[in-house]
Simulated scan of single mutants.
Amino acid sequence: MSKVNASLPGGPRSPGPGEGHCIICMDDIVEKRTLEKCMHSFCASCISEVFKVKPACPICNTFYGAYVGMQPQNGSMEVTRNWERLPGFESCGTIVIDYRFPAGIQEAGHPNPGRRYAGTSRRAFLPANTEGERVLRLLRRAFDQRLLFTVGTSATTGLSNVITWNDVHHKTNMQGGPQCFGYPDPGYLLRVQDELRSKGVTEDVVSKPVDRES
Rank of each mutant, 00 (worst) to 15 (best):
C46G: 01
A56M: 05
G182M: 06
F63K: 02
I97M: 12
T34C: 13
M26F: 12
G88P: 03
T164E: 07
E133F: 03
T34Y: 09
M26H: 06
N112F: 09
M77S: 03
G88Y: 04
I95C: 00
N166V: 03
V135K: 00
E213S: 15
G182S: 08
H169V: 15
T94V: 03
Q175Y: 10
T156S: 09
P17T: 12
A108K: 15
V68Y: 15
E133P: 09
A56L: 03
E213N: 14
F149E: 00
P55Q: 04
L86H: 04
G88R: 00
A108L: 12
Q73D: 15
W165K: 07
G200I: 13
I47V: 13
R122D: 10
A155F: 06
V168M: 14
D194P: 06
S160E: 14
F51T: 07
D185V: 09
M26K: 05
H169L: 14
C22I: 08
L159V: 12
V168W: 04
M39N: 14
T172L: 01
M70N: 12
R116V: 11
V201F: 07
G75F: 01
C38V: 11
P186V: 07
N129K: 04
P58R: 02
F149Y: 02
G109D: 06
L126W: 08
R13G: 05
P12W: 03
E203I: 11
Q193A: 09
V30F: 08
R100E: 12
A56E: 01
T164D: 07
G16R: 04
F181D: 15
G18I: 03
G177L: 08
D204R: 10
P209H: 05
P113W: 02
P58W: 04
M70K: 09
G177W: 06
G109K: 06
Y183G: 05
G16K: 04
A128N: 14
F89N: 07
G18W: 03
R85V: 10
Q106S: 07
Q73V: 14
F42M: 05
S7R: 11
M1F: 10
F42D: 00
D204Y: 08
P12F: 04
A128P: 04
K171G: 08
L136Y: 12
A155L: 14
S198G: 13
I24T: 02
P178C: 09
T120D: 06
